[in-house]
Amino acid sequence: MPSPAERVAAAMEAVPRTGFLPPAQRAHTDRDAPLSIGHGQTNSQPTTVRQMLELLDVQPGDRVLDVGSGSAWTTALLAHLTGPDGSVTGVERVPDLVAFGAANLVAAGMPWAHVERAVPGTLGWPCGGPYQRILVSAQAPALPAELVDQLSAGGVLVLPVAGRMLRVRADDGGPTVEEHGWYRFVPLVADPPAGRAAPGPAG
């Protein structure tokens, strides 16, 4: 059976980054660096994406949540890893990026993956859970219990928290947390519910 690293490498070869970048950025697709997709958001550095996906270890048929889906490149990579027997929900708070990501997924021909606009005041997409795997491509100041609660038993969450990459497993006695190096990401933000002021930067 292929290792997680081999499966992720195959996914990244099958789902090129180019189709998930704005036209002005496509000449830079081979740069191992984050690239702007507008609205203060980025398409993450490929090395970082690869490392996160290896930690996540998505299995065929998994139900997966992609928080901060942006241009939906990670959503499509996750969909390749789950295969058509699985399902992937991307969640994005910027309406223009929701539309951009959704169009990119249609072009990629992966109908088992889709992008939803984030619900104000809510992290993730609890109505679609529980999930075997959750990927978060934005940095939280602390481990979000709201996302841990969306994992199924034995499920895995990978996200950066206060600069450290965490792999969180939902075990019977509570979450088991591993640290895997230092990273920099845009902050994880949940828009406030209607009628409430927006919070300050998350990190």
Rank of each mutant, 00 (worst) to 15 (best):
P160L: 13
E146A: 15
E146M: 07
L166R: 14
V156Y: 09
D191T: 03
P34F: 01
G40P: 14
G203M: 13
S69Y: 00
A202V: 13
A194Q: 14
P111R: 07
G19I: 02
P192H: 08
F100Q: 04
A72K: 02
A99M: 00
M165V: 15
E116C: 14
P193I: 10
L81H: 07
R93K: 10
V64G: 02
L97Q: 02
R196W: 11
Y131V: 10
P141A: 03
P160H: 11
Q45V: 01
D171A: 13
R167H: 06
Q25A: 15
I134Q: 03
W73K: 03
D85I: 00
A202Q: 15
S87G: 05
S87C: 06
A107L: 08
G155T: 07
E116H: 14
H80F: 12
T47M: 09
L147M: 05
T18K: 13
A76C: 05
L159A: 12
Q150M: 06
A79F: 11
I134F: 01
L77H: 09
S69R: 01
D30E: 12
R26Q: 15
V64R: 01
T47H: 10
R31T: 14
P199M: 05
V156S: 04
P16R: 01
A197V: 11
P160W: 09
L53M: 12
A107M: 05
S152P: 00
R167M: 10
G19F: 02
L151Q: 09
D191W: 11
H28R: 15
L56F: 02
A162F: 13
H114F: 01
S36R: 06
H39V: 07
P193F: 13
T75P: 07
T176K: 12
R117V: 06
A10E: 15
P23H: 13
A140Y: 06
V177L: 11
A102L: 00
D62V: 08
R31L: 15
Q51V: 00
Q51K: 08
G121Y: 08
A27T: 04
P193N: 01
D191H: 12
G195V: 10
V88W: 04
G86M: 03
A79W: 11
L97C: 05
A107F: 05
S36F: 04
R31E: 15
